[in-house]
Structures are given as C-alpha cells and as structure tokens.
Design a protein around this nucleic acid. Sequence first.
DNA 1: GTACTCACG
DNA 2: GACGTACGTGAGTACG
Length: 937
Amino acid sequence: MGGTFGKGCHLHLIDGSAFIFRAFHALPPLTRKSDGLPIGAVSGFCNMIHKYVQDNAGPDAPTHVAVVFDKGSHTFRNDLYDLYKANRDAMPEDLRPQIPLTREATRAFNIACLEQEGFEADDIIATLTRQAVEAGGRVTIISSDKDLMQLVGNGVEMLDAMKGKRIGVEEVEEKFGVGPDRVVDVQALAGDSVDNIPGAPGIGIKTAALLIQEFGDLETLLDRADEIPQPKRRQTLVEHRTQIELSKRLVTLDSATPLDITLDDLEVREPDPAALMDFLTRMEFRTLTKRIAEGLGVEPPVIADTNPAGAAPSEAADQSATIPFRPEDYECIRDAAALQRWIDAATARGLMAVDTETTGLDEMRCDLVGISLAVEPGRACYIPLGHKIGEGDLFGADVLAEGQMPLDEALALLKPVLQDPAVIKIGQNMKYDAKVLARYGVHVAPIDDTMLMSYAMNAGLHGHGMDALSERYLEHQPIPIKSLLGSGKAQITFDRVPIDEAVKYAAEDADITLRLAQLFKPQLHRARVTTVYETLERPLVPVLAEMEMTGIRVDRDTLSRMSNAFAQKMAALEAEIHDLAGETFNVGSPKQLGEILFDKMSLPGGKKGKTGAYATGADVLEDLAAEGHDLPARVLDWRQLSKLKSTYTDALQDHINPETGRVHTSYVITGAVTGRLASTDPNLQNIPVRTEEGRRIRAAFVADEGKVLVSLDYSQIELRILAHVAGIDALKQAFREGQDIHAMTASEMFDVPMDQMTPEIRRQAKAINFGVIYGISGFGLARNLRIPRGEAQGFIDRYFERFPGIKDYMTETVAFAKANGFVQTLFGRKIHTPEIGAKGPQAGFAQRAAINAPIQGTAADIIRRAMIRMPGVLKGLPAKMLLQVHDELVFEVDKGAETGVIDAVREVMEGAAMPAVKLDVPLVVDAGTGQNWAEAH
DNA sequence: GTACTCACG
DNA sequence: GACGTACGTGAGTACG
C-alpha cells in the first residue's frame, strides 16, 4: 500500500482493554506451567487477536489497524469529577501483571499498540477516528462499548467482535432513541452507574431520548426546562443543571488527544513469524503456538516441558515438592551487579518470592537485617544488609559485618521491582514484610500470600505457619529459627547471626514460599475458593497494613492515673480479704483461694476440676456472694480491678510506640477459623465496655488534635444473617420493619403482646436469640439465664416450635458438615469441621461450631468486604480507618467532616454484601462520634 | 508449657 | 442413663 492515509483507506481500531477484561473474566485462572505466572488473560487476548486477524483477511480487509489501551487510572475526567469511575472495583491482582504482556502480545502480532497517559482508550479512538474521517477514509471500531457509539456515522461503524454484529447509525438509534450526534445528550441526562456518571436523578435512557427528540439538543432542553409539563421532571432538570452539564463533559470523548503517531504509522503489517513465535513460546501457549505456526506456514517451536511428559496438571505442581532443597546452592548477594541479575530474572518471570529478616517481631519497631528472594524452586538468594559483628560492647560498638551492600543502594535497586505492577511478590504472611518495607519507603505491590492461600483452602484443618505448611506439603523440615537465635535469655537477634548461616536459613524461607505458591495457586481453583482468596483475603492485606501502621492514639496519663487508683483500691480489698480469711494468701492464686473458701471456711459448692483444684471462676464466686458471703464478693471486685490493671492500664502503656505516640495492633488474618480477624500485641478487640469501670479505659483511646473518633457498627448482624440463611419469614419481616427483635421473639414465644413487654421477658428472649446463634443447648441456656435446666429446655422447645426453620437449618447444617467435612459462608468461605463425626462430648462441640461458623463467618466476610472497599471511599475524605472489632469499625476524622464520612462509610457497610449476595434482610449500621472511643461507641 | 480466669464480639 | 456443652478469640498470672 504505502503512501498517506486518505480516500479508500480503512482504519480498524481495536478496544484492547475491553478484549483483556473479557478474556480475563471468561477464562479460568490459567497459570504458566513453568513458574505459575497467571497468564489466562494474555492467552485469551492472543486468541481474540488471532481470530480478529483471521476474520479480517477478506476483501474488506483494513489498510490500517491499531489496538488501543487505557493507561493509568487518572484522566482529565477525574479532574472534572473526582468520583468518576469511583465505584469501579480495583483491578484483580492476578490481572495486573498480565497488562504489560498484552502490550507485548500486540507488538508480537506486529500491530500498532497505542496508549497515552491521562487519556482513556476511547479518547484516542475518537481522535484517530476524526483524523481518518477528515482524511476521507473509513473507520471500524472493534468494540461494543456504548460510550463509543457517539462516533458512529460518516463512514464510521462499530463491530461487536463477540457477537459478530455490526453497529451502525440504525443500531445506535435503536439503543439511544437518538442519532449518534445526540448520544452524549442522552447519556448526560441518563447518567451511567458503571462509570459513576451522575446524570439527572430519575431519568433513564427512554425519558432522556424523548426529551432530546422534543427539544432538539441538551442545551435547548436545559434553557427551556420550564416548558416541561411534568412537574417532577421539570424540577429535576432545573435543580441538577450543573450536574447534567458536568455529566455531558464526562461522556463526551476528546477527539483532540495529543498523539505522537500519525495514521500512516498504523499501516497493516505482516507479522514477523520469529518474533511472534518467540513470544508465544515464552508464554508457553502450546495449542495457540501450534495453530498460529500452521497459519504462518512455519515449524512450531518446541515448548520445553518442565514436567515429565504426559504429566497431569496436578502432578505438574508437584515439582515444588520433588526438586530437592540444596542450601549450598543459595546465593549470597554482596554487590549491585549480582542483585541486578536477580531483579532481571524476577522481572522476566513476572513473579518472585520475598522474605525479610528483621531484628524483632514488631514490624513497627524492628530493623531490616536482610532480604531473600526466590524466582524458581531451588533458586533463591539472600541479601544481607544489616548484619553486625562484635558483642556490642560497653560503647555499643556495633560494626557492620563485611561484604554487605549498603542498605540504601540495595533498596534503591529493589524498589522498582518490588513496586512493579507487572511482578507479583509472593510472601508467607506478606503483611509483615510489606509493613517493614513500607517503613523504608518501599510499597510492595501486587502481592500473593501462601499463608492466605492455605487459609482459604484449609481453615479448620491445620495451621498455616510456614514450618507446618512446608512439612505437610513439601515434606521438608525448614531450618528452625531457634538453631540460629537460641532461646530464652541467651537469645540473640537476627542481625547477630553470621551471614553464611543466615543465607541458608533466609533463602530457604523464600524458596519454600515460592514452592508453596506454585503448589497452592492451582489448588485454589480446584477447591473452589479462588473467589474467597481473591476478594476476601488477598485484597485485605494492604488495607490492614495501612490501618496497623496508622495506629490509634492512646493517652498515657489517663492510663497511668487509673493504674494508680486501681492499685490503691486493690490493696484495700486485699487487706479486707486477708482479714476475712484470717490469714494472708495470694488472692491471685485460684488454688490458694479455693483452699481458703472450701477447705478452711467450708463454704458450699466446692467442686474440683480435672486437675484436682477447686473451681473459683466468677460464676462460682457470684453464687457464693449471692448467699451473703463477703469474701468471694471482695475477690470478685479485686479480680476485676486486677484484670483491668494488668491487662489494660499497665500493659497498654507498654504498647505505645515511642515514635508515633500511638498503639499499633496486628491483625492476624488467619487467627480465627470462621474468617474473623484476631488482634494481637496488643489485642484491641477486647477493650472493656460492659462495666462502668472498664469503660473508662476506652476513654484513653483518643482522637488527635482537631479530629474526632467515629465508630460505626452493624446492628445485630448475626441474627440478621440467621434470619436469612434459615429463611425465617417472621424474623425477616421484623428486621425489615425495624422492630425490636428480642421483644418480638419474646412476644412470639411467651404470647405477650408487644405493648405489655417487660424487660425481664425480653432479656430471656435475647439470651435465647444469642443461644441459637451458638448452637443452643438446654444446659448452656440454663447456665446463662441461671434457671433450671428443664425450664431452659422448655424455652428451647417452644422456640423451635414457633420457628421451625431454625431447627431445620441446624439439622441441615450438621448433615452438610458430616457429608462434606466443611461448612460454608454465603460468600463461599469454607470452614472445615474434621471433628464432626467424633463420638462422645466432642460431637456436641463440633456440631455447635458447625452451626455457628456459617453465621459468624458470613458476618466476618461482610465486614471484610466493607473494609476492602473503604480506601476507595475514603479517598479525598479527611478520614482514616483505625480499628476493626468484628462488627465495628473505628475511624479518625477531621472535625467537621463527621457527617460526610459517616454517610459514606455507612453506605459501604450496609451495602457490603452486594452484589455477591442479596440478603433478604437489611443491614443496619449505627454510628457515633466523640473525642474518645468511650464517647464514640 | 498448661490451666485458669476474664476481657471482647 | 450419664456425660458435659453455649460460638469465636488473646493475654496475664500462677504453677509445675
């Protein structure tokens, strides 16, 4: 062809991003055999491009062609409207590293590949379309995106490649009710929930089309809005004029995008067989490579099979377990050139395992000592960075050991690859490493986590620590850390470990992590927990890391004053107790207390446990106190103070980080089998709230100057979930009507009209409602309500009579657990129940746990979903998420912004089950604010 | 290291 | 008929 683009030329513009997303979602999560790199979207993309090339070889073949991609997430539209596309879910982690490969694929097919920072693919398409039409040529846009329909006409048409359907002026008119030139007017009015275009509330495409048909165009319509007969419609247009005009600017494509190419650069070119084969071979696409090779008339290259010939896919991953561990092969990285080789290898592969070694277990305070990497099974290295020599003498003469790269230099080299969206960083408990590295200015992304993969597949079956996983799945016992650090008083920190020993230990950890990832990744799909892992586990890591690093401000003085007050009261109580006992003893020793109470004083109710010691729990002491005995009553007071002092007012002070002045808890994602989080070091999920004394401790959790704490919690979420999963119409109805659910239960059970409800009856019903969630038993309810067991059983029988669906749910859940060995939440989380078939008292335990797990777990999934969406919602708002307490989230918010934040957060929390699960009951979130947590809760 | 106790949802 | 049980956690203390 040659020459310039003009009359007779035919330009094809392919919407590349649409191809990618379609490929990603249509295909199962394929991974590259040799290293486990996710590759499904690239494979689908190549198939689609190949099909496109074949389909367009005929007489109407294009003379010019380009694939156009989106680039970056921020465009000029975000400057116009910061909520533009704000409701979009983040790109799936597994897709991210495939994006650059689709560009490579396009070039491998020798097709022009276009993208422009700050502009959407649609704008580039609009610009090229305009240029081509002005030059007198024809254009076909391969896409079905309605946003491109405004370009149709004047020799421009669209082609839906999937349906093989042409979209011309007629089809556009059919869809929008107006011609292509007025499509933007209709879109401006109708808005678009997918792109978060506001439009005019209450006006859809149909109404918008009618209005535009009548008034000619949007501007005329808005100017003459007062002529509209329908009052509501008229009012909407007048009130939302600015918003509608903004919407129009958002939907109008920019046909003047600055491009550094011309139409002539897009001329159709024959693919270079060698380059194309090289790419396909590297991707290890066996079928596609063969098919394309045949089409090109070349010999298909042999794709090295890293597995035994004919190996089944399940065996393929087993190489992780069969390649021997050879610690002597691990490399110690001491200079930039060596490090760069590993970085290049990781970049070429698109993934690597990463592990950090530090001086301690507190990510917020420890120092980085070294980093290990692995790129394939058996191939791992360690980069020592902070190893010291010498004993740390009187002068603290810490000297860096020889042969280590300077920390700054190593991190500068590693930072690009650790932050490279095209390279997945695999870790075992990656939240830890990500937090450490974040303190050194490196923000690791995207990540994969073997601990979380194990948790998604095997919660309830076994632990998810690396040593346990390695022994179980790789049949390899890792070097114990104790062998390097020792234990007890003589324990040293990792920076004191000799480098050669550290290499073997640290590189092995990265090696193990990589092997586990290769083994687990394909198993996720087979275990049907890919969605759980991808939507509930993996994306939670950066969210929690951010929360933990933010921490919450705790006022030391408040705690310290309380501590002193508690100490005085305790001393007084202790004297009184000793006086009553007639001797001094350790009040804190249950053993000594038991002997005083039941041997010396011969009080009734002395029951020995399996260890031969008397039980002295609160329930026992309360019974004694109720009978008028003073000593147990004082002990109860003393115990409460002792608990508050030691666990909270004292211990909490030790957790205030000297640098930040805040307390930084750690959430253990795999801490509870049900999907709940666990909070450790310190546990901020059990700060007192039930007693007045205890609640004062919450007042020590304060907002920074100029800020307030905001707490939002789900109201009775577990009962709502029970109503949904057990399908109890009466309960569902009550929740929909916003009734007092415990009173309603009481009314149903005891035949008491709602207006005659007494607090006592309601309290009993409340206990039953909770009991149901826990897998109710007569004994448990009796103990809780302090009523005879027969009476409690009577309550339960009546409850089941009134709500037979609950009994059915329980029976069915236990049967499911027995048949499958696990139960599931509404979101597909599996909780394994290996004890379900046990005999004896174990059986009851396991059954109640199985009944409770789907309810507790579904609630846990819902708040996880809310938390994962929170960063997107808080963007632009002066608010930070600080804490999660199972059904509560705590935020720190600039004073004055509370209302806006509460509205936004509440919307996310109440809608968190959607769209995956549509509950039959509404989720309701209560909110509070205050200077401290006691006020906010 | 285990048992007991008790703080939370 | 007896047994022993409410579900899920973390942490501090005593004690062997």
